[in-house]
Design a protein around this nucleic acid. Structure first.
Length: 491
RNA sequence: GGUUCCUUGGCCGAGUGGCUAGGCAACGGUCUGCAAAACCGUGUACGGCGGUUCGAAUCCGCCAGGAACCUCCA
């Protein structure tokens, strides 16, 4: 495929042609979840965004190593002395072993990602499994004089780093701004500057998750795991680093600083950031407590939810907005997505019914070109979907006998729709995930009833015909009359 | 307070200096026993005020409103 993919690089703040370091291979690192809570709607944004990137890169012929971590240690609750590992806190609250909490929420995360048809990354490393690598980086940075030890903790010396590098290059800040804007928090006394960040943190007595080191019994600073694990599995320089926009600063900025000191160069060439999902115009997130969990989305059990939404509806909803735009949650928007997606999937399934003819009344080649152009333009899935709806229109026109395609064009269209809808957008064709009651007996029974209805119609017995239709519909069987009979599906 | 970003028709949501985004909803028509589905058609959108330009929703300035980050967050 001689397509050129353009990706928006946060580093340069513009779209850049994507060129991998090693031809045919792509190294992709994405910040994964912190597993101390149930996955919510917000978690689906990066998961789906980078799932599409992963799928598209593979579709384009690249061999992709996709690393997405599980954060199970190290996130400080507040800062400095008041710091407490989030996992540990949750554990004490629930009186569970920290690793028990981690396991539980990791499993939950995996379960819901599977429902959303998010492909598993190639490697899913855990921070807790890479303490040694993280300590090695701490030692390395210390030996280079860009970190200092203080009361059993080790901090990165941002000011010193900034002399030869630009701390803030990714997020568009500079150290002067940071000096004046960083909030004064308790327990900053260990640090030389408020913007210094921990590489290693001494554990308070009540802190359960801890590892021995020559500095103290403690745990790694929360930016360090990504530096350690990306370098271990992708090398010190790899192609793409992704994550949520909320991680841009300080997380990714610190990551760059650490890795730059350790390796002499920035870790990733392209930095991609997905925007947030909002609700009532505000970011959906843990801190605000305004999130809707995926369990709630799929069951409909939440005050904000007018109904349950299927995983595919949620997936489609997310893909209908560009990944760098905020996306506002609303029932109306979700319902619109659901209906649109059903139409798209039905048309895709109906491709099999199409008959070729002598000539083509529309250009499949042009459609195909537009689809790839949309993807190549920084993964513009809303535009891609708009083009797919054009295809839907054409497919339905063909079904209605108002459009035609040659055998060759029809084949191309089938392949294209399969590639786009199934492979790249990752929608599964069996629409609603609910009762797949496709057992013989049920099918034959419904067929029997609908055949009786045809008889009734032949006899102009509209009362009986309507009764069969209405009652079946009430039971959730969707009925469509066609020229030569009927079609039905279970809703 | 600092930095950055956003404001598009009933709802969601793309986009470009001049060429139909798309979806959902609505309305009219075709089809149908009636519906549903499908098809055809309709909707004179770009926060406000100035400026640049032959021409701006798209560039610049100001104003209004909103958001993100600066603290854990996807």
């Amino acid at each position: 495929m001689e397509n050129t993919l353009y990706l928006y690089n946060t580093l340069s703040r513009k779209k850049e042609e994507f060129q991998p370091i090693n031809p045919k291979h792509v190294g992709l690192y994405v910040c994964g979840p912190t597993v101390y809570g149930d996955p919510h709607l917000g978690h689906t944004r990066p998961a789906i965004t980078f799932d599409i990137l992963f799928r598209y890169l593979k579709h384009s012929g690249y061999k992709v190593r996709y690393v997405r971590n599980i954060t199970d240690v190290g996130h400080l609750e507040n800062d400095a002395d008041a710091g407490e590992d989030k996992i540990a806190k949750k554990a004490r609250l629930e009186e569970l072993e920290p690793m028990e909490v981690v396991q539980y929420y990791t499993d939950r995360y995996h379960y819901y990602m599977d429902l959303l048809n998010v492909q598993k990354p190639s490697i899913e490393p855990r921070a807790s499994g890479h303490i040694i690598e993280q300590l090695q980086i701490v030692e390395d940075i210390l030996s280079k004089g860009l970190a200092y030890e203080s009361n059993g903790s080790v901090y990165f010396d941002v000011e010193k780093y900034n002399k030869d590098n630009h701390y803030g290059a990714l997020s568009g800040r500079n150290i002067e701004d940071l000096l004046s804007t960083t909030r004064e928090l308790d327990g900053q006394t260990e640090k030389r500057n408020s913007f210094d960040f921990a590489l290693w943190k001494k554990a308070a007595p009540e802190h359960i998750m801890r590892w021995p080191s020559r500095f103290s019994d403690g745990f790694p600073g929360w930016h360090l795991e990504c530096s350690a694990m990306s370098a271990r599995y992708l090398g010190t320089e790899f192609d793409i680093h992704g994550g949520g926009m909320d991680l841009l600063f300080p997380h990714h900025e610190c990551e760059i600083a650490q890795s730059t000191v350790a390796n002499g160069h920035t870790p990733a060439r392209y930095w991609m950031h997905n925007n947030m999902i909002t609700i009532d115009g505000q970011k959906m997130g843990k801190s605000l407590g305004n999130f809707i969990t995926l369990e709630q989305m799929f069951s409909g059990e939440h005050d904000k939810l007018a109904q349950a939404y299927s995983p595919m509806t949620v997936r489609f909803f997310i893909m209908q907005a560009h990944y760098r735009s905020t996306l506002d949650f609303s029932n109306e928007a979700l319902q619109a997505s659901q209906k649109g997606m059903e139409r798209l999937l039905e048309a895709t399934a109906n491709l099999e019914k199409l008959q070729a003819s002598d000539s083509s009344s529309f250009s499949v080649a042009e459609l195909k070109e537009k689809c790839y152009a949309a993807l190549n333009d920084d993964l513009n899935t809303p535009i891609l979907i708009a083009h797919l709806f054009d295809a839907v229109k054409s497919i339905n026109s063909m079904l209605a006998g108002k459009a035609s395609l040659t055998t060759e064009d029809l084949l191309t269209l089938k392949q294209l729709m399969h590639d786009m809808v199934i492979d790249i957008l990752g929608l599964s064709v069996n629409t609603s995930g609910s009762s797949e009651g496709n057992d013989e007996l049920l099918s034959e029974t419904i067929n029997l009833l609908l055949n009786l209805r045809i008889d009734a119609k032949t006899n102009k017995d509209w009362g009986t015909a309507d009764k069969i239709r209405n009652e079946l519909q009430a039971l959730g069987v969707e009925i469509k009359d066609t020229k030569d009979g009927f079609e039905w599906s279970i809703k």
